[in-house]
């Protein structure tokens, strides 16, 4: 196991055991099947892009990875998900699991705390008490989320009253403050302007040296720019997953993937 962990700076490797392995995952909301029989893995230090039209089960997949079904009524998850080889249904401390997974959803949520406390919350929860250490984490995470310059003079103002784009970057900073080794991003650029999106994309490219990233996006070109591999979901079905370069050069197993990338539907 230890030997398999990618050393700092290593590129995604197919040899190392994957970070996350998903087997036969089915997700239902009541009688509605959102995702059916998914088999997929997330490798270490890769960005896995997930593309597909609305309602294809991308968000449900992210939710299942973080065991969010526990607080979403009606959501039922079947199948097996392992994280570092551990079945996530069987961990005794689900909070420890979630604390290692950072999530960013399309609707930004600035918590009704100060900007500083928004980012300091996760470190505090894991027991960081020293002021200087917290200061350092807060600044580093805000810088990475491309928000530091805008808020460094008002760290004491309420995070929930920032603009939508700022709140989204605050959410990203908060996810990073967890020091996650898996980062889940769901259409993060919806609430962010194009320039900031580019800046965050650059950060993501750096971050993958430290963690695995799953990037759900409705922008096919964003997947092309960032993802090492790209998965295509369609109405709850996992159509295929392949190296991004292959998919975008037209080497696909299923013609629907090609049609979607070419913008013929969705």
């Amino acid at each position: 196991m230890v030997a398999g962990i990618a050393p700092n700076g290593a590129e995604a490797s197919a040899d190392a055991p994957p970070k996350v392995v998903v087997q036969n995952l089915t997700i239902r909301y009541g009688s509605h099947v959102a995702l059916h029989g998914l088999d997929l893995s997330v490798r270490r230090n890769e960005i896995l892009g997930i593309i597909g039209p609305a309602g294809s089960g991308k968000t449900s997949f992210l939710r299942a990875l973080n065991r969010m079904d526990e607080f979403i009524p009606e959501m039922e998850v079947e199948g097996r998900i392992t994280f570092d080889g551990r079945d996530i249904r069987r961990v005794r401390n689900v909070y420890a699991l979630r604390s290692r997974i950072g999530v960013v959803f399309p609707l930004p949520v600035g918590l009704p705390l100060t900007v500083y406390e928004n980012v300091a919350l996760a470190p505090r929860l894991r027991g960081v008490r020293k002021g200087s250490e917290l200061d350092e984490i807060v600044e580093r995470c805000l810088r990475r989320a491309a928000l530091w310059e805008e808020v460094k003079d008002r760290l004491d103002s309420l995070g929930s009253l920032l603009s939508g784009g700022q709140q989204q970057r605050l959410t990203i900073a908060r996810a990073l403050s967890q020091e996650p080794d898996l980062l889940l991003l769901d259409e993060f650029s919806i609430a962010v302007d194009p320039v900031t999106t580019m800046r965050i994309e650059d950060v993501l490219k750096e971050l993958k040296h430290e963690m695995s990233i799953v990037l759900v996006t409705n922008l096919v070109q964003q997947a092309r720019r960032l993802a090492d591999r790209t998965a295509f979901f369609l109405t709850g079905e996992h159509v295929e997953t392949s190296d991004t370069a292959r998919i975008f050069s037209g080497i696909v197993k299923d013609p629907r993937t090609h049609d979607y990338i070419e913008g013929r539907f969705g």
Binding site: M68, R98, V103, L111, L121
Partner: peptide, 10 residues
């Protein structure tokens, strides 16, 4: 707000 917190492992 609650869900954001739970998602962080709180």
């Amino acid at each position: 707000f609650r869900e954001a917190c739970w998602n962080m492992g709180a």
